[in-house]
Nucleic acid binder design. Structure first.
Lengths: 228, 228
DNA sequence: CGGGTTCTTGACTAGTTTCAAGCAAAGTGG
DNA sequence: CCACTTTGCTTGAAACTAGTCAAGAACCCG
């Protein structure tokens, strides 16, 4: 992450109106609502999702510490997706009203926000390829790889191991598959290959290169990124 | 689209380094390349896509007049997707080097760029839900609705009719389905419902509300948008 | 120790891909 | 102007993949 100038730092400090704690399972941004705020995740996992009228849910992406959510709602009239806390989450709150000041006076920060938006788009693009063009097994392997790398970037991996807050239902809703089929695919991945371990909310990649081979493509971590 | 101030207008004019013509079928931005330029589509259709190593292709989204492509490649080190002209396309070229000047001196334009990025994200989000959670029939109906509305926004619809440049392979690669199944689904949509007509590259929506009913959700057009 | 949520499994059904072949329209070159 | 090739569309059958239903096991929490 790049260094701030003192002026930027002062502004960002003031920009940060508040800190917000959200319980696991609570949606703090909702589709259809016009959001007054923009958030940066300081700790915990959240996910962006959309629901269809009949209850089908699609998880679009996950947000980890240093990720920003709610920009769409701030720029457009209303949110087109919801965001739910997967674990207890701490958020940094930016009032929408100050976003314009930021653009007017701190172009470097404005640039960073655009960077973050472009990065988010990149992640969804990858997810889209995953759903559209990969088989269930490849898809699942790729998602796990993706989540592992992102958790690693956020510093959540400790000796090859992460605290993994997902239920299989979450993965199913991310992968666009049914719960049952996700379970069976996961089992195939676990037993047949032994490339991963996942038990009691703890996830471990025991054979990364094998997982990469199954996924058909590696996921490379970001070198640097802005943090606002 | 909002009005520019004279100063903005002057800058944008100068910013526009060049105009570029691309033949149908040519990829003018490529995954893995570091792009020196940012483009705005002035006329024609293009599409963003990603390829897997074995040749599978996923189309991520389409770009119509007034849409911007290549922002990711300008901000990041390299492009993570390619862009191909679907019809002959006219592009407006912005040199990457001037993007920073734009942010520094024209915050309103910077804001517009962020708006466009957020809008693009919104579209991919919708596409993701479509692939992940809708059946083949719903999915196809929704895509056609989506394309029709966007073409309409861009002023390409003339008495309920558009020049439709897609092959069924394009739709298949957008929908994440095989060509054969796309063909059969399309036929089901055509015959069983009579909600659309598509022949000789000309597309017509003969029964919009029925199509909406099949898709399970309507697509509402944008009211206003920036254009750079 | 319940009672709820999550995970697991098998059997059955529905949806989708693959393969293969034929057709139609458009484009190319002798 | 007519073979000939190419590209895109269409169709049926067979094989495979994924979803649904149902029920039981395991786990977690108060």
């Amino acid at each position: 992450m790049r260094e701030f100038t003192p002026a930027e730092l002062a502004f960002v400090k003031e920009f940060k109106a508040d800190e917000l704690h959200v319980d696991a399972g609570a949606s703090f941004l909702r589709e259809g609502a016009s959001s007054e705020h923009l958030y940066t995740v300081l700790s915990g996992w959240a996910f962006r999702y959309k629901m269809l009228d009949d209850g089908r849910r699609q998880i679009l992406n996950y947000a980890l510490p240093a990720d920003m959510v709610g920009l769409q709602g701030t720029l457009m009239h209303e949110m087109e997706h919801s965001v739910e806390a997967l674990t207890p989450v701490t958020l940094c709150v930016f009032p929408r009203s100050k976003l314009w000041d930021l653009y007017a006076h701190f172009p470097s920060l404005a640039f960073d926000i655009t960077w973050l938006a472009a990065r988010e788009e990149q992640l969804i693009d990858e997810n889209l390829v995953n759903l559209g063009r990969r088989s269930a097994l490849e898809r699942t392997a790729y998602l796990l790889l993706h989540l592992f790398v992102r958790a690693d970037e956020a510093g959540l991996v400790k000796n090859g191991t992460i605290q993994f807050p997902f239920t299989q239902q979450h993965l199913a809703d991310t992968l666009g598959m049914s719960l049952v089929h996700t379970n069976k695919t996961l089992k195939r991945l676990l037993l047949a290959t032994n490339a991963i371990r996942w038990k009691d909310r703890v996830f471990e990649m025991t054979n990364r290169s094998l997982l990469v081979e199954i996924a058909g493509q590696d996921v490379t971590p970001r070198q640097s990124r802005p943090f606002i």
